[in-house]
Amino acid sequence: MQQDSRVFVAGHRGLVGSAICRKLQAEGYSGVLTRSRSETDLTDPGEVRHFFAESQPEYVFLAAAKVGGIHANDSAPADFLRDNLQIQLNVIDAAYRAGVKKLVFLGSSCIYPKHAPQPMKEEHLLTGPLEPTNEWYAIAKIAGIKQCQAYRRQYGFNAISLMPTNLYGPGDNFDLQNSHVLPALIRKFHEAREAGEATVTVWGSGMPRREFLHVDDLADACLFLMQHYDGEDIVNIGWGEDLSIAELAAMVKEVVGFEGEIVYDSDKPDGTPRKLMDTSRLTGLGWRPSIGLREGLEQTYRWFLENREAIRA
């Protein structure tokens, strides 16, 4: 991929897509292509084919997806399955037919079985039942992986699949009903501090363990793998370390400056007990993350404060 290559970032307004755009621009790539939903609806095959025929991108980062936390996945399973399947099918097929040189597909750590051995290796895919609260999204992402592999085998299309762990950072969704755990905690603790509340309630027992990666680290890994990896096998992208939700809540509480108590609502679902990625395949290729969780939390909270009026809430 050259500095003047035509590079389409699908989903450029989302957490991941916007980070990839920032990375490409910082590295001097001048041919970045983006389309808003009003310009090109990626769930519409005709619109997607027209865009590829008209714009002729040479490289694609497929970061567009319908995403959300446990509540969102549990409340709208049909939407999560349908929309993600449509986006993936349309973009991957149109990219192949338009002669795209290489496509990067972004999946998720939720593709792995609920009780997968820890840390989760790439070969654990499809070895057991999924976590029920997000299986619809997971099934769609697994289908995307298999589509990339099928198009590679049948057509020789160079599509690679990357599986990031839990992400956070600038541009995240801080909606308390539909967001993931880390941005939801930032907003909860911030609003409780502003209101002078005595407690903050956190969903679940606090016992599940999660791994978190700053989205700018992910963008760096995506560009690295676009340039240096061409295999059929999926690649995990993570930090390689995890912490409990209770430890995360305590860290967010400290960063935000909330002085009250944390209460856990054990009637709410915990989700998967643990999700830690084995990143040895990625580190073996020569890439490691650089933004620690405390540093990333402080940066993300500053971004939240600066963009409170404009955040997707």
Rank of each mutant, 00 (worst) to 15 (best):
C222T: 12
D230M: 04
H214T: 10
G204W: 01
A249R: 01
F258G: 07
L243N: 00
E232L: 11
E254D: 15
E241T: 15
V252I: 14
I234C: 15
G231W: 11
V255N: 09
I237P: 09
A219R: 09
A250Q: 14
W239D: 12
E232D: 15
L223T: 02
L248Q: 11
D220F: 01
H228V: 04
S205I: 01
I234N: 09
D230L: 05
E247R: 13
R210K: 13
V235M: 14
H228R: 15
H214C: 12
F224W: 04
A250N: 14
L218V: 11
L248N: 09
D216P: 03
L213I: 14
C222V: 11
E247Y: 10
L213P: 05
L248H: 11
R209G: 10
L213R: 05
R209V: 04
G240R: 10
I237K: 07
E261L: 06
M226D: 06
A246F: 03
H214R: 10
G206V: 03
A219T: 10
V235N: 03
M207E: 12
G204K: 01
M207K: 13
E254A: 15
R210A: 02
G257E: 10
D242G: 13
I245F: 06
D217M: 06
G260Q: 06
W239P: 00
D216Q: 11
M207R: 13
V252G: 08
D220G: 02
G260A: 08
R209K: 14
W203K: 02
N236W: 01
Y229R: 05
Y229M: 07
I237N: 09
D233R: 13
G231N: 09
A221I: 11
M251E: 13
D230G: 15
H228P: 04
Y229L: 12
I245K: 03
V252P: 04
G257I: 14
F258V: 08
S205R: 00
R209L: 04
A221V: 10
D233L: 13
W239G: 09
V252S: 09
A246H: 01
E259H: 14
H228S: 14
G257W: 02
F212M: 08
V215E: 02
A250L: 12
I234W: 00
Y229F: 13
E261Q: 14
G238S: 04
S244Y: 03
S244E: 04
F258E: 08
I237R: 06
G204V: 02
L218C: 09
V215W: 02
M251K: 15
V256A: 02
Y229T: 10
L248T: 11
V235R: 03
E259P: 01
A246Y: 00
M226I: 00
Q227S: 08
Q227N: 13
E254F: 07
E241M: 15
E247T: 11
A221D: 10
E241G: 11
V255I: 15
L248R: 10
L223N: 07
G240F: 10
G204P: 01
G204E: 04
G204N: 02
M207P: 01
F258T: 08
L218I: 06
